[in-house]
Design a protein around this nucleic acid. Structure first.
Lengths: 126, 126, 126, 126
DNA sequence: GTGGTCTAGACCACT
DNA sequence: GTGGTCTAGACCACA
């Protein structure tokens, strides 16, 4: 389900967080789906339960899942209307990335082309 | 030199980091320029020295400046040839942002338009 | 019955919790009234049942409803005499909030005025 | 410095978080002050370092301190202008408390009087 | 069973 | 020395 790369610079819990975000945005996991329990996923990935809990808690803080003690962890409802404030935050992050791309010397046209490709690529999955 | 918005949700050190990136990309600061010392800038902005230090450290991590102990903080050389590995990392981050924008319901066209604007906006300053 | 704002930063379950508290304090729901079942409300609000369950659980924790397994969820009796210990806990929480308001720079008069308004606003519904 | 009540229902890390917020708002700790290191405070309170780190991280998320790897943990700069969004959040929490006070049967006048006292009491410390 | 918290260690990268 | 992460356990309240 989620591939961990222990050699990666990304910490394990971050890989789990990003992995789940990908599973949700790509439609594998949908609103209300029960996620593996902390202990279950811990065994599946042969990772310590505390690491899983750290990842789940981050996902909850970011609003992707919610945890109910005694029941488990569930995928949050998908927002039906785009949240402009949230969009603005994400644009700010992307803008930061763009600034760095320009700084390391990539031409504007290349950047626009690459990102347009990214959008179309991911957009077609939905 | 740098305008701080104390009412902003952005933390002070982030505003300083972004402010310096702006100064560099817009050409006000150039490769090798000496940056104000921590204490100096701390007085200029009436901000705690630790806050400046955290900002400088972040800039160093991101490769925008380098610090020489005993001499101070200097603007890094602009990379002559783009680092493809670094570019790939940044594209990955941007791709993650795009996935989230699509997930919260923004149409592809809007995203492409907004990001193209971002690139042109920042690109024109160079 | 309850209006959900999907664009809000408040999570869905929090909106449901607050909505029910409003319905009780405003007298629409009275002691002993049966609340909609989890499945029923889930359909009414087109929200995942787990979300409803989390909301009901929170309401039960806060003492606004009680759940009888096999029968459903009912509005609790309104306490006849105020519980001084509980009141003390709540005052402590409010005091913590006030300390933070003062810390971020709001004048005492503003705070008192705003809170008096809050009390009168909510108090008039009873 | 901070009194822990192991019998309390509040978890240890929450007591530490609230304790530090109190130390900052009451002026004992000021902007830029270095806080005890994770290990140091861990020994002072005879509490596990992980518990301290959890508390410090929560404080950092809430914007009260910032941590610099290799340097330590420092009290954030005090916002010079009140953040209206933050104030609104706190008022919402207080409003929630008021709703519960009214629900358990306290009269409006009592609540207003008690809270006015709280504001004046804490306001005079600054 | 579930998550929530805590302890007692360990190793890493960085100053 | 500093924080950041991770492991391997433990106990609790709740359902």
């Amino acid at each position: 389900m989620i591939q961990l790369d222990l050699k990666s610079r990304k910490s394990i819990y971050e890989q789990i967080v990003d992995g789940f975000k990908e599973l949700v945005t790509s439609g594998v996991l949908k609103s209300g789906d029960k996620m593996p329990s902390v202990r279950e996923l811990s065994k599946m990935l042969t990772v310590n339960p505390n690491t899983i809990q750290k990842a789940y808690r981050k996902l909850e803080e970011d609003g992707w899942v919610y945890m109910v003690s005694g029941l488990g962890c569930f995928v949050s409802d998908k927002p039906q209307a785009p949240d402009p404030a949230r969009a603005q935050e994400i644009y700010a992050e992307i803008g930061e990335g763009i600034r760095q791309l320009l700084y390391i010397g990539l031409p504007k046209e290349t950047i626009i082309k690459e990102i347009t490709d990214l959008v179309n690529e991911r957009g077609n999955r939905e």
